[in-house]
Design a protein around this nucleic acid. Structure first.
Lengths: 121, 121
DNA sequence: GAACCATATTCGCCTTGACGAATATATCAG
DNA sequence: CTGATATATTCGTCAAGGCGAATATGGTTC
């Protein structure tokens, strides 16, 4: 059960918002995350753990890699806040740059990522 | 110009969210605010100043009293985040209790406050 | 088993920001 | 001007939480 408190605490940090901004385009593994965001691996992992504990993201292990994705929200209030937040982040300069960097890393065109992100929120 | 950063920083604090929850029903003066929330006057004032600096609320002075109200948001992204947040707070237990206490203080029935709040978000 | 790789956690350090008491400011009444 | 009232700000204290380096964990390969 996702608590509203935890949602707002999670959204208060810029790195976590950048992570959510990327996850709006779909599942991403930790290594691509910390490279796209250009932060140390421990930082990416720490923030991902925070988001996971808050119930905002879910994980899937695939061998050595762990892929993160946005969770599905039962509570419509939480879902609404997340949707508007992702939509607000979508057109942000920072999100644009992060998405561009991710695009190169995973060899998927920016346009495709944007399309997924829009479908998501 | 309201910055998204400031919005999320403002929403990260519970007292500030309670304030916004009350303001959804309309203009309120500081004294009613800190009584309804049952926090020291300096705490209410400090958080209101925070919200004001973030651009989320506006004020109107009337003699000794200062009335606070929600600001109007030009940026549709910010407006969207605020709308979904207020809507999420609306049905919260804490907001319910605060609204009940405010209702007694300003002698306006809870139903009327709820109606205004719903119209607001 | 050992070596290796991706991810998670721990560690000490440091900044940010919340708190309530006390004080300052501003407005009004007499 | 004086006193009273509502609001704002300052002050010292304290806890929460961010940081990156280093280390631990868990899974894969040989």
């Amino acid at each position: 059960m996702v608590q509203l408190d935890d949602v707002f605490a999670a959204l208060a940090d810029e790195t976590r918002r950048r992570i959510l901004g990327l996850l709006a385009s779909g599942e991403i593994c930790v290594c691509h995350m910390h490279e796209a965001l250009d932060v140390p691996q421990s930082t990416a992992s720490r923030h991902l753990a925070h988001l996971r504990k808050a119930g905002l993201v879910a994980t899937r292990r695939d061998g050595l890699w762990v892929h993160y994705r946005l969770a599905e929200f039962e509570d419509p209030a939480v879902a609404g806040v997340l949707r508007s937040t992702l939509s607000a982040l979508h057109s942000t300069l920072g999100t644009d740059q992060d998405r561009k960097k991710l695009s190169k890393l995973i060899q998927i065109p920016v346009k495709a990522l944007e399309k997924s992100a829009k479908r998501c929120c």
